[in-house]
Amino acid sequence: MSTATTRRPARPVARFAAAVAAAALALVTAGAVAPSAGAAVPAAGSAVVTESNAFFQQAALAGIVAVPLPSATASYDGSAGFSGSFPVTGGTGSLTDYYGQVQLGGGLLVVDVRTGRSVAFTQLAFSADTWQLTGVPAGGAAPVALFDPAGENTVTRSGAVQSLTASSLTVDAEGALLLDQRLGTSFFTAGQSVGSFALTYTPAS
Rank of each mutant, 00 (worst) to 15 (best):
R8Y: 04
T73R: 03
T50L: 12
D172H: 09
V28H: 15
A120E: 14
F197W: 11
S163I: 00
V161Q: 08
L27F: 13
A21L: 14
Q101C: 04
L169H: 03
R8Q: 07
S94W: 03
S83N: 09
L169D: 01
L179Q: 12
G90F: 12
T134S: 10
G184W: 06
Y76K: 07
V171L: 15
T170I: 12
G90E: 08
Q101I: 12
Q57T: 13
S79W: 02
A30G: 14
G78Q: 01
D148R: 13
T115V: 06
T89V: 15
R11D: 14
A204P: 07
S158K: 02
G191S: 02
Q58R: 15
A19E: 10
F126W: 13
S163G: 08
Q57I: 04
T122A: 14
V171S: 06
V88D: 06
G159V: 04
L133Y: 15
A54F: 03
T73I: 05
A72I: 01
A66L: 07
V110Y: 05
A34K: 13
R7M: 01
G107F: 07
G159Q: 00
D112T: 04
G151H: 01
D112V: 02
A18F: 05
S127L: 03
A18T: 15
W131K: 09
S75I: 05
S71T: 14
S163K: 10
A128T: 03
S118E: 09
L95A: 05
A24E: 14
S127R: 02
A145D: 11
E152H: 10
G100I: 10
D180L: 11
G105T: 08
A60Y: 01
Q57Y: 00
P12Q: 01
T165Y: 02
W131E: 03
T29E: 14
A190F: 08
G175K: 12
